[in-house]
Design a protein around this nucleic acid. Structure first.
Lengths: 207, 207
DNA sequence: TGCATCATTGCAGACTCTGCACTTTCGCCT
DNA sequence: AGGCGAAAGTGCAGAGTCTGCAATGATGCA
């Protein structure tokens, strides 16, 4: 993790370096003073970029705290998911995990972020909000798979099921990634964390 | 629904009337022009209150679109949940539903809101964000119940379980309330909707 | 009716965010 | 090397959100 980046030009390396510098500065400030006592100007001064550039990078004040948005899922992965059979929840969890791991998250920043989220729960909300933008897309993908898997189901019911699947998965995923991050002795696979969380969800829902 | 409010003084009635007027105006404008082409000033002009008052009521621009925050849960209900046994997910779903129904939601506004949410998924995100503020509290309540119910579990595991329960429930609840709203021929109980959604979650998670 | 209290309002100002024009930097090609 | 075209960073102006404070107005109650 946080190694083996597909290096290309100086331009991209500069961008990556800057991004981390800004994210780190933002997180430190927010941890020290609380999110709403931090201004974008403070972050910019601490990380030595112009406010205009800050917004070019992150779009919103909280952007640097939440981290850059993930790259969109690969079409190939989506198709594989739609055509696969078995547990839909498990499949979707893996689909998302693939994109997550591919983004090569920086562990140190992750841990700071987690500490901050514990201090300020509203941020967790914003995180959800950002993901929620993609929920619709995700829901449609799940619907496609459900249609293929159970063609006999009524459309309304299928839509509701898809929404439920997405709700459960987007709820469970952050916990899986957290478990993964905690367990990461050497190079534990995120699959284990997913399996574990999924088992727990089953147990919870059952009793 | 939207009857039998515990009426008190003129003051409160005025406030309620105003709130609805503003919410309705905001929703109409947002449906017509899209959320980010609507300004607070526009909403205020349409509903004839001052911007300052708008913010006193709703706090944020989106406040009127999301509706006033729910009243906090009653301590008695919380205690009953903690001491109850059986399905934790089911119990929590009912706990939240109780608060929801008690807030006496206005059906017409609800339907507009739903239409708007379909148009602008980011709003659904903000909805989640607002609820997320309460997630921590909810998580602690669930932990208390889990402690009572399964004292042998390790604390870490229990914390993760609690988070999962909250994730599943907060994901499933909006769908239950939507089902309820759709099915509402006469005075169907929200319990039915909950049971149905819960059954569906079980099925989804299982396969 | 008259007073105490609470709600609404106007105003000033801080902060977030965007469009546009300008400058700098980078990648590439001769 | 040197220079050109494209991409990225910056400054500025301005719209829009949101808050504190002080003043005004409405309500509840004696």
């Amino acid at each position: 993790m946080s190694s083996s980046a597909p290096v290309t030009g100086l331009r991209e390396r500069n961008r990556a370096r800057r991004t981390r510098r800004v994210e780190r500065a933002a997180l430190e400030l927010a941890l020290a003073h609380g999110v709403d006592h931090v201004t974008v100007d403070m972050i910019c001064e601490a990380s030595d970029i112009s406010p205009r550039t800050y917004f070019n990078y992150f779009g919103t004040k909280e952007g640097a705290l939440l981290g850059l948005a993930q790259a969109p899922l690969l079409d190939a992965d989506i198709e594989a998911f739609v055509e696969a059979r078995g547990s839909v929840v498990d499949g979707l969890l893996h689909l998302i995990a693939t994109g997550f791991v591919a983004s090569d998250p920086d562990r140190e920043i992750f841990l700071m972020r987690r500490r901050l989220f514990a201090q300020e729960p509203e941020l967790q909300g914003l995180q959800l909000a950002r993901v929620a933008g993609k929920r619709q897309a995700l829901t449609r993908i799940v619907e496609r798979r459900l249609t293929a898997q159970h063609p006999e189901t009524a459309p309304t019911e299928r839509a509701e099921e898809a929404q439920l699947v997405v709700a459960v998965v987007t709820g469970a995923f952050p916990i899986a990634s957290r478990v993964w991050l905690d367990r990461e002795d050497a190079d534990a696979s995120i699959d284990e964390a997913i399996a574990m969380v999924l088992a727990r969800v089953r147990r919870i829902v059952q009793m």
